[in-house]
Design a protein around this nucleic acid. Structure first.
Length: 373
DNA sequence: TGGGGTTAT
DNA sequence: ATAACCC
């Protein structure tokens, strides 16, 4: 858990929204947003990177970077060329393999699930936690004196470097609840806080306020993709597809559930703005599904055959073609137990898979991490 | 723009 | 199967 710990304490603004404690529909939702998550994972894996301007590269893009790099002008999703030009000392690490990012991402989610099981993931680096129940229980434990001191505390603050001050300034303006903020004059707020902050927090106050936090649970699909300069032969495509499939099979094996559908996605070269994708999917034959957990049976060969059929149903291999992306996706995941227990098993029991799967997930969390928040 | 992910149509 | 959205 070292990764998540450092990620949270070093890099993350925590946006905390609350409404007055007495209100009937009161909810407390914490938004945990890890900034430059990939870069932090890399710095934890290799501490020598700490203190240097660091970018995470995928193909010719710097998809994210640490604060040192940002101070030197590097931006997210910047071209590698531009980034190097802005910042010649920039250290780049390849981040095309998401495995470690994914693993640590789920460790963060699992940590948050200790506070409440109601955790919704958004991408790899954001989580929404509904703490309403926990807060209510704690409020009930409080002596009534303390409670009355708390009832004023409906407040909003967001994540500028000092969020606290903004909250204070809002209070000075008589804004002490979300509703106050919503109905407050935009123009006055802009004069007080600056146009940027004012508009942002006022939008936040209207935002996803009443949308429930939907627990994400285990992923509904697994996919691996690779963008390419040019794939123009069936042989090339097959070899890429084999790579993607091999990685996916490892992941599926570790997960323990079995995919019942497979999809192949391509992107064709085009000068058009709309670089849309095409896909074909099919059910996986049940005799193959059964073999997924077992290391001794070669599931690659029949799966590659299926994928190549899907490929040929999209691409006329007798004609010239030019693809710029290949992706394989496993979805329609089912537990072995198709009963009512369903996917909750995923969290409560370790994977039953055989020795062919090495990387079992750990479900144990350390208690001490509570304090890191 | 990468390499993912979700839900709606 | 695709679109539209999120990071």
């Amino acid at each position: 858990m070292e990764g998540a710990e450092a990620g949270v304490s070093v890099g993350s603004p925590v946006h905390d929204r609350a409404v007055p404690a007495g209100s009937p529909s009161s909810r407390v939702i914490v938004h945990v947003d890890l900034d430059c998550f990939y870069a932090q994972v890399e710095m934890i894996s290799n501490p020598e990177l700490k203190g240097k301007p660091l970018g995470v590269q995928q193909k010719y893009l710097v998809v994210t970077c640490n604060y040192e790099a940002r101070e030197l002008g590097v931006k997210k999703l910047m071209n590698v060329r531009d980034a190097k030009e802005k910042c010649p000392q920039l250290v780049l690490v390849n981040g095309e393999d998401l495995t470690r990012y994914r693993e640590i991402s789920y460790k963060v989610t699992e940590l948050l699930e200790e506070f409440s099981p109601v955790v919704e993931r958004l991408g790899f680096d954001e989580n929404f936690v509904d703490l309403s129940e926990m807060v209510e229980k704690r409020l009930q434990q409080l002596p009534s004196d303390d409670l009355s001191a708390l009832t004023v505390s409906g407040h909003v603050y967001n994540n500028q470097c000092i969020g606290y001050k903004t909250a204070k300034r809002l209070e000075a303006l008589g804004i002490s609840s979300v509703h106050d903020l919503q109905t407050f004059s935009s123009k006055i707020l802009e004069k007080e806080l600056g146009i940027s902050i004012a508009q942002r927090i006022q939008k936040l106050s209207f935002g996803e306020d009443n949308s429930p936090v939907t627990p994400s649970g285990p992923p509904q699909s697994f996919s691996e993709e690779d963008s390419l300069k040019k794939c123009s032969s069936e042989v090339e495509a097959k070899s890429k597809i084999q790579e993607l499939l091999a990685s996916l099979l490892k992941r599926v094996c570790q997960d323990g559930r079995k995919p019942h559908t497979i999809r192949l996605i391509i992107r064709r070269y085009s000068s058009e703005k709309h670089c849309s994708r095409e896909s074909r999917q099919c059910s996986i034959p049940s005799h193959i599904i059964q073999k997924f957990g077992i290391g001794s049976y070669d599931v690659m060969t029949p799966m590659v055959d299926i994928l190549m059929k899907l490929f040929r149903s999209m691409v006329n291999v007798k004609m010239p073609f030019h693809l710029t992306l290949l992706s394989v996706c496993f979805c329609n995941l089912k537990s072995l137990n198709t009963t009512k227990k369903g996917t909750i098993d995923y969290y409560l029991t370790p994977s039953l898979s055989t020795t062919s799967c090495s990387g079992k997930r750990s479900f144990k969390m350390k208690d001490t991490q509570m304090e890191d928040f």
